[in-house]
Each structure stands twice: as structure tokens, then as C-alpha cells.
Design a protein around this nucleic acid. Structure first.
Lengths: 212, 212
DNA sequence: TTTTGTGTTAACAATTCTGTTAAATAATTT
DNA sequence: AAATTATTTAACAGAATTGTTAACACAAAA
């Protein structure tokens, strides 16, 4: 039998089990009894610490929404490098952050994108982050364009391109992996390929069109 | 009251209601009673025509998986055009097909990506479609590269780039729309912008790097 | 007209799931 | 130590959900 007494932190155990359950099955699919079992506590404990299933879910969802937003900021918010290098690093960081939590994008899609009210919450977070990022990035893009080193591009557009490429790569991995590479090289190989491609695609996106 | 007798096609009514319910709420979230109510039939009729909730769901899911795969094929499977034009048309067709069924990508993500066995089914469909497409497309890409009109690119890689950009645009629309354009121009404006950007990005992806 | 088979209804059975409660146990304070 | 507070348990209540069944209606065939 597992330790059943004196969880110095029952609350934490519940949260961790809940995170796994909700990420794997979504809100509707998750079962509170299953969470309790996985946490090694009685079913009633869930209602003692958090009143309802919804309350537990909100804790998890909030944390994950924060993480998704944060990943964009920490990936791209490093000024001081030359533009191509900054972009390359940003894309790779962003990709790696997502790859480290590969079930996160699917969770956000299923739980946020379909619920307008949750979209609103997420949107406010994103807005704050973009406000910090875009001005800066746009300036760099404009400067590079002025120097004739790059085509003029809208910063938000470019960022959406990056996020599209990265998120879809992670999201669709279970579907795509066997299509692209060897079956046993697997995950790492696939991720390496897609990461490189996403960098290459964005590099070219800002490339100055050669005059004839 | 609605017509309650002699539905010449009760089965169809159930399927249509089920499609709406499953697409909106997913398998776990969907309620058979809710489907019955929406179809205007008794709850027991669902079990008369289809034995279980699962059976109804499979019907819908199969149809939708087919549609997603088909959209790629019908969009890109039109040879005989010059490469850049063929790509532009392919991307736009694919985008439009998805936009016409905007809740489809989310449905596939929630219901397929998280279930390995469903992934396997979907993968076989995709494989068949790609086999028909890729050889042809790769040849065109190679020819263009040989003529010095384009950089050499792997066809599957390019196709994944396109699908990433298009799918994410549709998928994340509820989240992104207010971030990008005016609030009232809304959906059409957002879609038009993203579609144009995706074409532009892929165009540049195959662009030949200018020699200095 | 009787029979037969399909479609339909209403009520119900069985399960599952969330949330509650009262009592027991441990920890903390006084 | 006594009292108070916090945590845990076990049993249960209530609701919702899927699936079943027996009776019924109606059409077409025999």
C-alpha cells in the first residue's frame, strides 16, 4: 500500500495528479475519482482542498495559459543580438520550450479555443506579452529593412508565422512522425528536422527579394 | 410541436444533430439526450439506429477524417500549372476548404491527436494521399530547381509548412482575430490577411537565394 | 382481414460521477 | 492536559447519463 497518512502536502499531490489527468483527458474526460486515486488520497479530499472539479481545473488551466504565453516572451524577448541571430534563437527557444511540454498545445486547443470566455482570458495575457515584444521587434525589422538587409515585414505577421510552424510541429507530431523519418529515430529526429525547417522558412521570409 | 411521426429519414436527422454536438463539445462533452433533442426524436431512437454513443461518434469521426485528408488532395492535386501558380492555388484552396469548416481542425486535434489508435487510422489515410501527391510535387520542385528558378526543397517539408500555416490560422482564429485587425471587419478580413501571408511565406520559401 | 416487420414511445434499470456529511483522527494552541 | 482546529475517512445522497425493454402505431404484404 502507498503512504496514506500525513501527506505533508496533500494539496500538492492532488494538483499534480489533476494536471496529468486534465492534460491527458481534458475537463470533460477527466474524473475526480481518478485524480484522487492517482494522488493516493480519498476522493473527499479533493472537495476539502478545492471545492469543486472546476476549481481544480482552473488552477491547472491558469498555470498552463501562463506558461504558453510566457514561452513566447522568454523565447523572443532577448534583444541585443543581430536580427537574424535573434530570430533563429527565438524560434529555437520557442520550439524547445514547447517540445519540453509537448501535450500543452493540444490542451490549450481543446480547452481554450472552444470556449469563448477562456479565449478572452488568454487573449488578455497574450496582448500584454505582445505589447512588450512587438514594438521592439518591429523596430529591428524596420531598421534591417532600411539598411537593405531585409524585406519589410509586419512583426506580428512574422511572429504568427513562427508560432504556426512551431506549434503545429509539436501538436501534430503523433500524426506526422512516422510519415517523415525513420520509425526508430523517432521524436528527437523529427523535432530536429522541423526546428531546422522552421528557422529556414522564417529566414527566407525576411529575405530581401533580389532585383533583376 | 415538431413533426414527431414518420421521419422519412430519422437516421439522417440524428446524424446531423450528432455532428453538431460532437464538433462543438467533443466525444466526452457530447450528450446523447442532447443529440436526440436537437434531432427532434426520442432518446431511444439513437440506440435503435446506432447501438451506442461510440457507434454514432465513429460515423462522424470517419467522415471528418476523410474530409481533412481529402482537402489536402483536392487542393494540391491539380497538375499542369507552373509551379508558383500551382502552389498559390493549392495554398488558397486548402485554406478556403478549411475555412469553410472552421471547427474541423479543432475537432481533429481534440479527438484524433490524443488517441493513438485514431492517429493510426488517420495516418493511413494521409499516407495514401501523400503518396499520390508528393512524387508529382517533388518532381516539379526538382525541375524548377534544375532550371535555376527555385531553391531545392523537400516536397513533404514544404507541404508540412503549408499545412502548419493554414491549419494554425484557422485553428487559432478565435484567439487571434481581435489581436490582428479591426474588431468588426472580423473573420473575413483576418482570413484574407492570413491567406495572403501564407502564400507569401511559401513563395519565399522556394525562392532561389541570390548569389552575391 | 390477419400477419409481419419497422419505426416509435415512455418508462425504467444500472451505472457513474460529483459533491456532502458526520464521525474519527491528528495537529496545534491554550 | 484540554480545547480547538485541521485533516482524513467512509458512507451516502442526488443528479445525470447511457442503454434496455415492453408496449404501441402503422404500413405493407399475405
Amino acid at each position: 500500500m502507498a503512504e496514506h497518512t500525513h501527506h505533508t502536502n496533500t494539496e500538492q499531490a492532488i494538483l499534480e495528479a489533476a494536471e496529468r489527468e486534465f492534460l491527458a483527458k481534458g475537463f470533460e474526460g477527466a474524473r475526480t475519482t481518478s485524480i484522487a486515486r492517482a494522488a493516493g488520497v480519498t476522493h473527499a479530499m479533493l472537495h476539502y482542498y478545492f471545492r469543486t472539479k472546476e476549481k481544480i481545473f482552473e488552477r491547472i488551466l491558469d498555470e498552463k495559459m501562463r506558461l504558453i504565453g510566457e514561452s513566447v516572451l522568454t523565447a523572443f524577448g532577448q534583444p541585443g543580438l543581430p536580427l537574424p541571430e535573434r530570430l533563429r534563437q527565438g524560434i529555437e527557444n520557442h520550439f524547445d520550450l514547447l517540445a519540453a511540454q509537448a501535450d500543452l498545445p493540444r490542451f490549450v486547443v481543446t480547452e481554450v479555443f472552444s470556449h469563448p470566455e477562456r479565449c478572452e482570458v488568454m487573449r488578455r495575457r497574450i496582448r500584454r506579452i505582445l505589447d512588450r515584444l512587438l514594438v521592439d521587434l518591429q523596430r529591428e525589422l524596420d531598421e534591417a529593412a532600411a539598411r537593405g538587409e531585409a524585406d519589410p515585414v509586419d512583426a506580428l505577421t512574422l511572429l504568427l508565422d513562427i508560432i504556426s510552424l512551431n506549434v503545429f510541429s509539436i501538436l501534430a507530431y503523433p500524426l506526422l512522425a512516422p510519415l517523415v523519418g525513420d520509425p526508430e529515430g523517432g521524436r528527437d529526429r523529427f523535432f530536429a528536422m522541423r526546428k531546422a525547417e522552421n528557422v529556414a522558412a522564417i529566414r527566407k521570409r525576411i529575405l530581401k527579394i533580389p532585383e533583376r
